[in-house]
Design a protein around this nucleic acid. Sequence first.
DNA 1: TTGTAAGCGTTATCAA
DNA 2: TTGATAACGCTTACAA
Lengths: 340, 340
Amino acid sequence: MSSEPLTHSAAPTLELVAAAAGVSRSTVSRVVNGSPNVTPEAVEAVERAIDELGYVPNRAARILASRRTFSIALVIPENTAKFFADPYFASVVQGLAMHLAGTQYTLTLLIAAENDAEKTRRYLQAGNVDGAIILSHHSDDRSYVALAKSIPVVFGGRPMSSEGPNPYYVDVDNVEASREITGRLVAAGRTRIASIAGPLNMAAGLDRLEGWRRALDDAKLTPVRIEHGDFTPASGEAAMRRLLDSGVEFDGVFVASAQMASGALNALRERGMRVPDDVGMVTIDNDYFAQSAQPPLTTIEQPTMEVGATMATVLLRLIDGESVDRVTMMPVRVIERDSA
Amino acid sequence: MSSEPLTHSAAPTLELVAAAAGVSRSTVSRVVNGSPNVTPEAVEAVERAIDELGYVPNRAARILASRRTFSIALVIPENTAKFFADPYFASVVQGLAMHLAGTQYTLTLLIAAENDAEKTRRYLQAGNVDGAIILSHHSDDRSYVALAKSIPVVFGGRPMSSEGPNPYYVDVDNVEASREITGRLVAAGRTRIASIAGPLNMAAGLDRLEGWRRALDDAKLTPVRIEHGDFTPASGEAAMRRLLDSGVEFDGVFVASAQMASGALNALRERGMRVPDDVGMVTIDNDYFAQSAQPPLTTIEQPTMEVGATMATVLLRLIDGESVDRVTMMPVRVIERDSA
DNA sequence: TTGTAAGCGTTATCAA
DNA sequence: TTGATAACGCTTACAA
């Protein structure tokens, strides 16, 4: 009772359009694909026919005949389970999707199951997509780096793999960004600066830690202590607890992501410590977590939407056989507030 | 210099597999598609050949020949710009994507440009997908309801449209949920209860407001005041400011989403009001916003991942021509904390 | 500039 | 149970 048969109104084919316009299928195809070698009259007639019939090219047929899929894969490793919850990724994907919406390309979401990465790899290599965008932090992106031998691949953030061809990627200079924002702590007079860092198997984790180190170096300060998290709020909270429990004294902390900072703030509050009164805090990402933290955090803003759009641009150029720089660095900016 | 030609190692075709296995293409096709009418020996031979050659069926060819696309569209209205930033959606999409990963189906992300919804509609009706999942709150989902005449469509949350065929959708009982959680405020002794509601052009906004009304009714309390937001933190903050500025006295507030509650909490804190000391607060969604709020909020937990997975299940059954209930209601549960 | 015709890699029908 | 063979709807030489 609840499901009636569906009326799949047979879509008009190119053949029908040709008949209606009084031309051959080739000509219709040319018009549809914007070939310059068609007389204005023919174009006119074809376009009218298309309009009247509501013709839409059959994607599969077009793909099969042209050997181009006009679709690109967005690969998300499954272990990045909380992927979608991360405002950074959310925004990058949004930028990506919106940019693509302005093109002929379609975005296919691919959750790469860990147990058989094989399945994903084969799908990608079987010519089902024209290119792939890999969004992950993890070091297990080796197989994807290799994938680049078969199809154009663009990474979001520098991949960790050392082998394989030089990957194409879009990123920000995490080392410089961290160094600069940690510098704000120094400028505020903090001398015992700790860090809640990201995982060392992610480039962002590694680089941000390095930036913190350099800032301390610049100021001739000694690193106080490092605790690691995985960029989630909960891990930031746990890391801060460990930091407090360790007994080391610190008056400043660089937290490698705003999400972790948010958690760290909770832990601090729990122990009665105040920011910036008792300890200064700076971080990276100007998302809701940084903006609505108590107090709002001095941080680094990344152009997340643009990162997504740029990844799309780079990939499309690669697909079109154009030459592109392997590395595209996006600018960041310091958002000064009162947490340092 | 930076981009070498790519070697698209020609993927082995079904034909090659047939040759290697010493059978016809038809037989290979049958094996690939799990037809029961093949001798074990043939299956064996074909499977070996497939393995050796690393054969993967060509999607386009398969789609073209079978008239099935094995792909479903996830339609996201562009005006739901902040879509990805919403933990609720993020989680639903995750559940959806992971469920689909276990099937033959592929998820195509479709950002529906507002200016030409036509483009999206055509894409969907041109037979490029087997079905569509519409994730939006808005009332402008009329065109999508109509879409259901052409292809199977499942909505996330009750669509607002009144015309067209009865839509299939997966949702939670927002009225009951809100009524129950608001009841916690009553149970805590609150008597002057306001609400920061969602937009009235979304079913969730409407229903949650209705639930709040009923709870007050149940307790013979008079509604104090309503301010509207759009489910984002910023809108919750603004709404709370308006509520405070209005001068009405209230000792309890039901905020229609945890994101808004998070913003509302900021506004309250800014004015020196404390939760739950001065005012009790309850909300909906047990995401990070509810969990890490100060204080953590008494709220309603929705099975977000399951909602996503269920939408996929319903859609696939529809595609397979099976009969499914128009409405699938998912259970929620109360998370009791100390904010009421 | 246009049309003809040969694929593209599958599935599906029909005989065998 | 298997194998020819004709679609599926489009692009693309090549010829005109």
